[in-house]
Every structure is written in structure tokens, then in C-alpha cells.
């Protein structure tokens, strides 16, 4: 059902020593093309993401209860479960978007490699740079062209780059998002003119342009038609191995098609969400241990 596990073996080696220092400074002292490129892209490696004992609240209302999940390097992890069980909240905790909501709070740790992104010495912006996000509704910047959108992260994080570097990053990121061939002749047209699916892939390109270690996707296809959905799923397949992917989806077939591992979230009436079962996608769909998982993946509730 899921893709063969060779993909995990095909990963580029991840030298952990080169990961930490390259992000700490971020602003390259030297603005020559090569220096900027290496600062932006560095030794791009997918990194393991590990959530430990995550609790989350909105005000007094607890929505997640001691959720722990390991999202292995370069693999696609799918978070499945009925609406309102805390999947999206969990996803937003993984790159510190949760704290944007007033009165939202959390506890626990989110380990990127061996670093807790919630540690006191960690900048929220650097966590979000390393852990990119694609949202439910395609949200390219409408005032910008396709080209500007693809490299908008540079501007947002205050990195200056010259034309050569930008051109390279635009093509590279659009290729990663399987969008290059469709837009290469209209890079300077507004992004709003693209179809929904193209916009969503542009958002993926935009996130990939700064070579994140992890890419989070919050129901990325729920606003798309089946053809566009297929293209985005293919793109996810292409990115496997280059980046650790975590995807929230309501679509069981999609979870089965794209993911290596699955985690099934469930919240009983009035209770905070928990992970009922997690494991390799094949096992989750083929031989779930928990009756509730079986019912859900077979479409009997939710």
C-alpha cells in the first residue's frame, strides 16, 4: 500500500555536526553567490523530528494529552483521525505556530535532531525556517509574482542574495515542487493567476527554497480537485528522502498512498486528543492492533 521502504535507505548521509552551526548565524557575512547559497541551503539534510509528551491547551480547554511521536528522517508521516482530535494543533506545535493563537499554551518537547525547538535559547524564527509549513488553503502572496513568491523566504528572513543565486533558488525550488515546467515561461506573472493546485505547489516550492529539514503539511489537498491532489501527492513522493514530511490528512487513501508511517489521533467526547496507535502505514492499514483504528481506516466512523 505504501511505497517501498528503499526510499528511506536512499537518504543522503546526514552529518549532524554541520547542522547546528549553519543555522545559528543565519546572516551570511559574505554576500557572494556561493556564500549566500551555502548559508541558505547549507548541507541540506532531512532531520528527525521527535515530539515528546506534548500537552496542549486553548485557555482551560485541554486538546492534546501526552502525545509522543517520532517522525523519522526523510520519511512521510501521516497524522490521521476525525475532525477535532487535535491533529492540526499537534502539527502547529511542531513549528511553533500554535503560540500565535491567543490563550494557546503547550508543554512537552519538540526535538529537531538533538535540539528542543522550545528551549529558551532557540529563536522562534529559526525553528520555523528549519521546519517549513504548507497550509490547508493555498496562500501564495498575491501581490508578488511567481518568482518573488518562490524566494519570499529570503526577503522575510533578511537574507540578501544576488540575481544568480535567486534564479538558481527559484528554478531549484520550483523543480522540487514539480512546478517548474508549468511556470518557467511566466515566472514574473502574479501568483494569483495560477490554479489552486499550482498555487499549493508554489507554496511547497516557497517552503523548500530555504531547504528546511522538515516540511509540515496541514491537509494540503483538501481545497484541491482530484487531478491537482494527484500532482501534489506526486510532489510529496518526489520530496521523500530530501526532507522529513509530516502530513495531516482526512483522506484515508491519501494517507495510504503517500505515507511511510501513520499516527491515528482520537479524542473521546470531551476528552483531549491522544494517539491511539502509530506505526508503519502498511501495518496501520493492513493489521491494526486497535479496534478503533480498524474501524476508522475502514471508514466505519469519523
Amino acid at each position: 500500500m505504501s511505497l517501498p521502504s528503499e526510499t528511506a535507505i536512499a537518504l543522503p548521509p546526514a552529518p549532524p555536526s554541520s547542522v547546528a552551526p549553519r543555522r545559528s548565524g543565519w546572516r551570511p557575512a559574505d554576500t557572494s553567490p556561493l556564500a549566500v547559497l551555502s548559508a541558505v541551503r547549507g548541507s541540506s539534510v532531512a532531520t528527525e523530528l521527535r515530539a515528546e509528551e506534548i500537552n496542549a491547551w486553548f485557555g482551560d480547554h485541554k486538546v492534546l494529552d501526552r502525545v509522543s511521536l517520532t517522525m523519522p528522517t526523510g520519511q512521510v508521516s501521516a497524522l490521521i483521525g476525525p475532525s477535532g482530535c487535535g491533529k492540526s494543533t499537534f502539527l502547529r506545535i511542531l513549528n511553533r505556530m500554535h503560540e500565535l493563537v491567543p490563550a494557546a499554551s503547550m508543554s512537552g518537547r519538540v526535538m529537531l535532531g538533538d535540539q528542543d525547538i522550545y528551549a529558551a535559547d532557540q529563536r522562534v524564527t529559526s525553528a520555523r525556517r528549519r521546519i517549513g509549513m504548507v497550509f490547508q488553503k493555498p496562500n501564495p502572496f498575491p501581490a508578488m509574482s511567481i518568482y518573488e513568491n518562490a524566494i519570499s523566504a529570503l526577503d522575510l528572513t533578511g537574507v540578501r542574495a544576488d540575481r544568480v543565486v535567486k534564479d538558481f533558488l527559484v528554478e531549484d525550488s520550483l523543480r522540487k515542487a514539480s512546478l517548474w515546467e508549468e511556470v518557467r515561461h511566466r515566472l514574473h506573472q502574479p501568483a494569483g493567476g495560477l490554479s489552486g493546485g499550482q498555487q499549493q505547489r508554489l507554496c511547497i516550492a516557497r517552503a523548500m527554497a530555504i531547504s528546511p529539514d522538515v516540511l509540515l503539511m496541514d491537509e494540503p489537498c483538501s481545497a484541491l480537485d482530484p487531478t491537482s491532489t494527484r500532482r501534489v501527492e506526486d510532489t510529496i513522493g518526489e520530496l521523500r528522502g530530501q526532507v522529513t514530511i509530516v502530513i495531516v490528512t482526512h483522506n484515508m487513501q491519501q494517507a495510504a498512498r503517500v505515507s511511510d508511517r501513520c499516527a491515528f489521533f482520537l479524542a473521546a467526547q470531551g476528552q483531549p486528543g491522544v494517539i491511539v496507535e502509530q506505526g508503519p502505514t502498511d501495518d496501520m492499514f493492513g493489521s491494526p492492533r486497535d479496534q478503533r483504528t480498524r474501524d476508522y481506516v475502514e471508514g466505519r466512523f469519523g
Binding site: R128, P142, L156, R206
Partner: peptide, 14 residues
């Protein structure tokens, strides 16, 4: 729009 704001923040924007 919240979507654009979050997009920018999600990219590590200050």
C-alpha cells in the same frame, strides 16, 4: 488575510 500572515510567519519571517 490570516493565511498570508501565517504563510509569512511559517517561513521564519520576523
Amino acid at each position: 488575510p490570516v493565511g498570508e500572515r501565517e504563510a509569512a510567519l511559517g517561513l521564519g519571517g520576523t
